[in-house]
Amino acid sequence: MSDLQASYQKAIRFAAEKHAIQNQLITGSNIPYVVHLSNVAMEILMAAQATENFDVTIAVQIALLHDVLEDTATTFEEIEVTFGNQIAQAVQALSKNDATPAVDKMADSLRRIKALPKEVWAVKMADRITNLQPPPQHWTIEKIKTYKEQALLIATELKDGNAYLANRLAEQIVTYSKYSQADIQP
């Protein structure tokens, strides 16, 4: 088994257990949250094939773990002991800081992400790519527009992190735009 395979299996098992404890599902669905995590990891695997000097083993672990601090009772220390400081720092940067006012959370997260290696930037783009699906039925047009605006900010701030994912994100934003225009349909 390669380092990538072993790292993937260790991280997905860890993340799946943590999110399952919360009975976490993909928002607006009955799909287990681990599907979202594996979709983010798939974006990373595809980006790695198109990117030179990309540490896919590190990036895949970060992709699979990116929401455990934000959405579960997992601690920074637990990630650090299990996966190392580099992974723990990346997952922390990808997590919203609850001490930051809501309007500043995305800018704060992007600032912290940009201080880390490009693999972390790639995970943030991959996460938003996979989240730009049909929005949950309960979202308002305003929420959808805000989510699109955040995606545009991510695309602008992180575009130099990975050309493949920057292009994928730009394409997804265009596709997602139809949901934010529902209020101007005839």
Rank of each mutant, 00 (worst) to 15 (best):
L69T: 00
H66D: 01
I113T: 02
A166L: 06
V81L: 09
A93D: 00
V81G: 10
D71R: 15
Q172K: 15
A155H: 08
L94C: 03
P186S: 10
L165E: 00
S38Q: 11
K105G: 01
Q137K: 14
E119H: 05
H138A: 15
A102W: 11
D127Q: 04
R112Q: 10
E142K: 09
Q185W: 15
L169K: 01
L165N: 04
T74A: 11
T72C: 06
A115F: 08
I129K: 01
K124G: 05
Q150N: 10
L25K: 12
E70M: 06
T175R: 13
L153F: 09
E157F: 10
L153A: 13
T140Q: 10
T72S: 05
N162M: 05
M106I: 06
I26M: 10
A163F: 09
L158V: 07
A11C: 10
A126D: 02
I12H: 06
R111P: 00
F76G: 05
K145P: 05
E52V: 10
Q181Y: 14
A50T: 13
P136A: 12
V60W: 01
W139E: 05
I21Y: 13
P186M: 08
L25P: 04
I58A: 07
Y33A: 07
A41I: 01
M125L: 08
A155K: 03
H138E: 13
E171I: 11
L165I: 04
Y147V: 11
K114F: 08
L165M: 02
P136H: 05
Q61N: 03
A16Q: 08
M1P: 14
W139N: 03
E157Q: 09
Y164D: 04
A126C: 08
T82V: 08
D108W: 05
V91N: 01
D55C: 05
V91M: 03
F83K: 02
A50W: 09
F83Y: 04
D183A: 14
H19S: 06
A11D: 02
D104M: 15
Q49T: 12
N30D: 13
T130A: 06
A63I: 07
T82E: 11
D127A: 08
Q137D: 14
G161H: 02
F54V: 09
L4I: 11
I173K: 05
K118P: 00
K96M: 09
N167L: 15
K118R: 08
A63T: 04
A102H: 11
